[in-house]
Design a protein around this nucleic acid. Sequence first.
DNA 1: GCGAATTGTTTCGCGTGCGAAGCATTTGAT
DNA 2: ATCAAATGCTTCGCACGCGAAACAATTCGC
Lengths: 160, 160
Amino acid sequence: MRAAPKPPSAEQPELDTIVEAILYLYTESRRITKDVAARHGVTGPQLAVVKMLEPVGKLSLSELSWKIRARNSTVTGIIDRMEREGLVERRRSEDDRRVIHITLTKKGQRLAGEIPVEPVQIFRQILSELSPRDAGELSRILTRLARRVRELVQEKGEVE
Amino acid sequence: MRAAPKPPSAEQPELDTIVEAILYLYTESRRITKDVAARHGVTGPQLAVVKMLEPVGKLSLSELSWKIRARNSTVTGIIDRMEREGLVERRRSEDDRRVIHITLTKKGQRLAGEIPVEPVQIFRQILSELSPRDAGELSRILTRLARRVRELVQEKGEVE
DNA sequence: GCGAATTGTTTCGCGTGCGAAGCATTTGAT
DNA sequence: ATCAAATGCTTCGCACGCGAAACAATTCGC
């Protein structure tokens, strides 16, 4: 697992452009999501949770964590605040009493209905302006990149 | 529960793939950056600040905010903690006494020398495995996307 | 020159976001 | 059956990250 440390890759200004763009797209779409959510009295992550729960009814806290790419300890806090606001309920699973199922309350369901777009949809909407060809290319390249990163991560902190 | 208010955008699973990949790449590279920084006793954003300051010597707080894509109020906190650790110094500008110049202390400079990569470089390193053709395509498409988003943002909350 | 608008920074309150440690429950190995 | 490891969740302390409000210095309008 020593992966030969890639020699200092020479100049490739394109790479910086790509990094710039991804960072920009990510942070900006996050801010947009936040604005949309704020109009309905919730935060970005809370809106994400509501929209995750809407179609399936219930999810365990871990499943939720996985879906919104956060750690359990983070999601615990988000659910705490949502429960305080009466948007969701915690219910202990019958099968496995370690598991907590999260469900939407009536209020949560109403909210889900009011907001047409799920957060990711905003990103998606921007992307939908791409030509099918570009979308295909983008999808192909990014997927490969993600796979590669996943490999690296699995090999444990080989960076540096 | 009502017919799905399906938005006019057609079915394009590729878009979801793209969204997935960008989210993944972003969050994962952030975690990797954090790990690298932690090995040297600082946080991700702090490492970013150190590496921003290294080549130019001094930057105003606003310039720093712009560069790391955060708000001034956020950067104030980051600089507070870095100053407490003796990594940077605040100095009032002579020309415009509203401006605060941030500079690296000896300790900060030493740290900058110890850490070879700037945070963005990690992202960059992953990207450098792309073939030149793919890098070109990716750059082209993402740049166009970012430009489009910038337009939308400027037109003020056009979303929804 | 003078008050009003603008700009650069800080303060405040709140909501993530994380890792480490802790607790309860389940699973596995013997 | 028993105990150790694994799993699911929570708690804690800390560091962002943001918008709104406050404050100081500068610039603008006249």
